[in-house]
Design a protein around this nucleic acid. Structure first.
Length: 203
DNA sequence: CGGCTGATGATCT
DNA sequence: GATCATCAGCCGG
């Protein structure tokens, strides 16, 4: 089977909302493109979470450290960290320079390079390939080497325009956090089978 | 489906 | 030593 190759234009930084909640919502339906020696992976963003300045759940809360410094870059840069001894999380920085905020990529709808996304992983349903932030990073082969990368520039990972129509966007509390857990800063495409979380947070 | 649990390591106190 | 923006595997209904 011949996989269609999408002609996707890279998003310019000036197109991205600066504030993290607005950015998180804006990114639903947009695309992430991963360029690897073996080929290209392209996925449609279906779930994000915003982390704000003065948000106790944000890694930047409490100031800049070696780990979180990418969150303080101008909006549009990758922030990658390792957690639970197993998983990388991919974020994009939000806010102006020196303000620590970001958006977590939680789920993708695989559009291109599906075989590449599967490599080195067991039997995984296509709907589960990038469903959840850990699986998303695994599917895109994201690790700390990409931390600090400009996602608005040509390179190994960048943000692309939307492919096809965007469904209705839902909003909910964030998943898996304890601090400031009541804030409704998670955004997702309603009804998509590629969205993570309990069923009650997918409709 | 939902609920539970162990794995596993970087970071910070 | 505790915490952690998770996941796969297992169990019961």
């Amino acid at each position: 089977m011949v996989m269609a190759r999408y002609a996707v234009r890279r998003l310019r930084r000036a197109e991205l909302p600066v504030a993290s909640a607005a950015l998180a919502r804006y990114l639903i339906g947009k695309t992430l493109v991963r360029e690897l020696p073996k080929g290209r992976i392209l996925g449609r963003i279906v779930e994000t979470e915003a982390y704000l300045p003065n948000d106790a759940a944000c890694h930047a809360f409490g100031g800049e450290t070696r780990r979180n410094r990418s969150l303080f870059l101008r909006h549009g840069h990758a922030y990658v960290y390792f957690i639970y001894g197993n998983h990388f999380m991919l974020n994009v920085s939000a806010g102006p320079p020196r303000v620590g905020a970001g958006v977590l990529f939680r789920a993708l709808e695989p559009l291109e390079g599906v075989a590449l996304m599967r490599r080195g992983r067991g039997r995984v349903k296509e709907t589960d390939l990038a469903r959840g932030p850990g699986r998303l990073a695994a599917a895109l082969r994201v690790d700390r080497e990409l931390d600090g990368l400009d996602l608005c520039a040509a390179g190994p990972l960048w943000l692309g325009e939307a492919v096809g129509p965007v469904g209705r966007i839902g909003r909910s509390v964030r998943i898996g956090i304890r601090r400031d857990a009541h804030r409704r800063l998670r955004f997702y495409e309603r009804g998509s089978p590629f969205v993570s979380g309990p069923k009650s947070l997918r409709s």
